[in-house]
């Protein structure tokens, strides 16, 4: 695939930055040029959070995903704010358990994953972000299963290694979701 220009957006606490970290590690482990830029500031505590991830074959200029070709939204304000910024032909991944409306645009492809509900049902509370990631992997082929595991190993801190299995389960759940 060509450059992946990814914007992940939602509330603080949903693991938006963590999902971005996973994607950027997956890209780096493939030897690509990558960058990860969080929104930072007071709004991160319970307010909106988003992060830009760019994965490219060439050195990266701007690290800001101004016009993403992969948009991941985990709350309605984020879809409202960023739907129009997605490039034509881009893909929008929507957590449909938190966002009631559909995508308005007809020149992009929408994927609706009830990630938060799936996470609650499978005792994976707090891992809706990784369910979304699983769906992204399925639809974009952004990494293979070895790279996925390697990236997870990089971002799950040593003292939380018991979370590895839950993260893998979440990704798998997203991967197989319709």
């Amino acid at each position: 695939m060509g450059d992946a220009v990814i914007l992940v957006a939602g509330f603080g606490g949903q693991g938006i930055l963590f999902a971005g970290k996973f994607l950027v590690y997956a890209g780096m482990l493939q030897g690509k040029h990558v960058s990860w830029l969080p929104s930072y500031g007071p709004e991160m505590r319970g307010g909106t959070a988003n992060c830009s991830v760019i994965i490219s074959d060439r050195p990266i200029g701007s690290p800001i995903a101004e016009t993403p070709n992969i948009l991941v939204v985990m709350n309605t304000p984020s879809l409202d704010a960023f739907e129009k910024s997605c490039v034509s032909g881009g893909r929008i991944f929507v957590d449909s358990s938190l966002i009631e409306r559909k995508i308005v645009r007809d020149d992009v492809t929408g994927f609706y994953i009830p990630a938060t509900r799936l996470a609650d049902e499978d005792k994976l509370k707090g891992l809706a972000n990784m369910i979304m990631v699983g769906k992204i992997i399925r639809e974009t082929g952004i990494c293979d299963s070895d790279e996925m595991e390697a990236a997870l190993n990089k971002i799950v801190p040593e003292r939380k290694k018991n979370m590895l299995e839950a993260n893998l389960r979440a990704i798998n759940l997203g991967y197989i979701s319709a």
Binding site: M28, W36, L37, Y40, P63, I64
Partner: peptide, 10 residues
């Protein structure tokens, strides 16, 4: 600047 300080790169 804030971008360079906050961004992650290899």
């Amino acid at each position: 600047d804030g971008i360079l300080g906050q961004m992650m790169e290899p």
